[in-house]
């Protein structure tokens, strides 16, 4: 009995009229991951297969892709545990396709930059720096590994190209919670937009798909609550200011 698994891998090169899937056979060991399989296929069967990866341990976020229709990090997705004799591998959705399994992360990163993502706590890296007030201990940034999986899983990102997206909105909410020098009104201005926090339709797919427990949908809801609160306060403050 052969333990071989067929990998149906999405293929596309710049200039191709359409994408297609190529099939490759791979015999996985008990701990082989999808990323192991893909790198082996590239090494031994087709060196033109392109994919992004780096760390092999769910830290860098570069190997986000769709395996059997669901967004995962290929590096921590065990082939045997998928339980299928055929494994379909596709690039992430809702991002510009570059080649095979590679998508352009530019729009995704630009959105994170726009909300002044608090990427890494400076207090971790600067000797003698204090933690933000009210924070008992420094933690690494919000666990977001910037894999783009949330955008791929989001039904709204599928139709609204201007949507700020789950990761950027979660980062915006972190700026609100812990400004750390960030420009809170500016960031909230970005989020308080029809294409920002209000575009979300509460499917929670981003939070379910997130491999790093960022819970973007939860952050978007907290962000909305805060935006509503700010608007009420502004409304109530207006007559007071007018009376001065």
């Amino acid at each position: 009995m052969s333990d071989s698994v067929t990998f149906r891998v999405h293929r596309f090169k710049q200039g191709d009229a359409a994408s297609h899937h190529d099939s490759f056979e791979f015999e996985p060991g008990p701990r082989s991951t999808v990323l192991d399989a893909l790198t082996a296929i590239r090494r031994t069967q087709d060196p033109t297969l392109t994919l992004r990866h780096s760390c092999f341990h769910a830290s860098c976020g570069t190997c986000g892709m769709k395996v059997n229709g669901r967004e995962v990090l290929a590096c921590v997705t065990n082939v045997r545990e998928l339980g299928t004799g055929e494994v379909t591998v596709d690039p992430l959705d809702n991002a510009p396709l570059v080649s095979d399994l590679v998508v352009d992360m530019g729009p995704f990163f630009a959105r994170l930059n726009a909300v002044e993502r608090p990427l890494v706590r400076e207090s971790e890296l600067v000797p003698g720096a204090h933690t933000a007030s009210g924070i008992p201990q420094p933690l690494r940034y919000e666990d977001c590994i910037e894999c783009g999986i949330c955008i791929s899983a989001c039904p709204i990102a599928a139709t609204d190209p201007e949507y700020l997206g789950p990761a950027a909105l979660a980062a915006a909410d972190r700026v609100r919670e812990e400004p750390r020098g960030g420009d809170v009104p500016f960031v909230l201005g970005l989020a308080d937009d029809p294409h920002g926090a209000w575009r979300c339709h509460v499917a929670f797919e981003c939070s379910e798909a997130c491999p790093s427990n960022v819970d973007p949908a939860g952050h978007i809801m907290q962000l909305r609550r805060s935006l509503i609160g700010r608007r009420w306060r502004a409304l109530l403050a207006q007559p007071v200011e007018a009376g001065r």
Partner: peptide, 17 residues
């Protein structure tokens, strides 16, 4: 700090898109 470098990176500007 590292965040400043990121802000200075392309696409890291502060103006409202």
């Amino acid at each position: 700090g590292p965040t400043d470098e990121l802000r200075a990176a392309p696409g890291g500007g502060r103006e409202l898109p």
